[in-house]
Amino acid sequence: MTTEPRLDAPTLVEDLLLLLFQPASGTIAGENTLFYVLGGAVLADLALGEHLTTTDRGRVSGVAGHPPPDDLLRPAWTYLAEKPRGVQTALAAIGPALREPVLARLVARGDIDEEPLKVLGLFRTTALREGRTERRARLLADVRRVLVDGAEPHARVAALAALLSASGTLPQFDREIPWTSATVTRAKELERGDWGADAAAAAVSRTVTASVVNSVVVAVTVLPRA
Rank of each mutant, 00 (worst) to 15 (best):
L160G: 10
R136H: 06
R57N: 06
A203E: 15
D70L: 13
R129W: 15
H66G: 01
N214A: 08
V217R: 14
G26Q: 07
A199V: 07
L48A: 06
D45G: 06
L139P: 00
R175L: 15
A104K: 03
R129I: 04
R59T: 07
F173V: 10
L160D: 04
S165V: 08
P116G: 07
D45I: 02
A81Y: 02
A92T: 06
G40W: 10
A166D: 00
I28L: 08
S211G: 12
E100V: 06
E191C: 12
T3Y: 15
D71Q: 13
D194Y: 08
L128V: 04
W77S: 09
R129L: 12
P224G: 07
T55V: 14
R99P: 02
W179K: 11
A158L: 05
A137Q: 12
G131C: 06
L16Q: 06
L223S: 11
E191D: 03
R136I: 09
Y79P: 05
L98H: 02
A219R: 09
L120T: 01
L52I: 02
V107K: 15
T27N: 12
F123G: 02
V148K: 03
R132M: 01
V107W: 03
A41T: 06
V42M: 03
W195M: 11
R59W: 01
I177L: 07
D8I: 10
P68W: 14
A47E: 09
G65M: 07
G131F: 14
P67C: 10
L38I: 14
D198N: 08
R132Q: 05
G196W: 11
R109K: 11
R206D: 09
E130C: 04
L38H: 01
P153D: 00
L7E: 02
L73Y: 11
D198I: 00
R145Q: 11
L43K: 10
E114T: 12
D111G: 02
E100A: 13
R6S: 08
R135D: 07
L17P: 05
V184N: 03
L20W: 08
R6N: 03
S165G: 10
E100K: 13
P153G: 12
L164I: 02
L170E: 09
R124I: 00
A141G: 07
L103M: 11
V102Q: 09
E14L: 03
T53D: 06
V218C: 03
N214H: 14
L122V: 08
P75H: 10
P178N: 03
A219H: 04
V148H: 12
D198G: 03
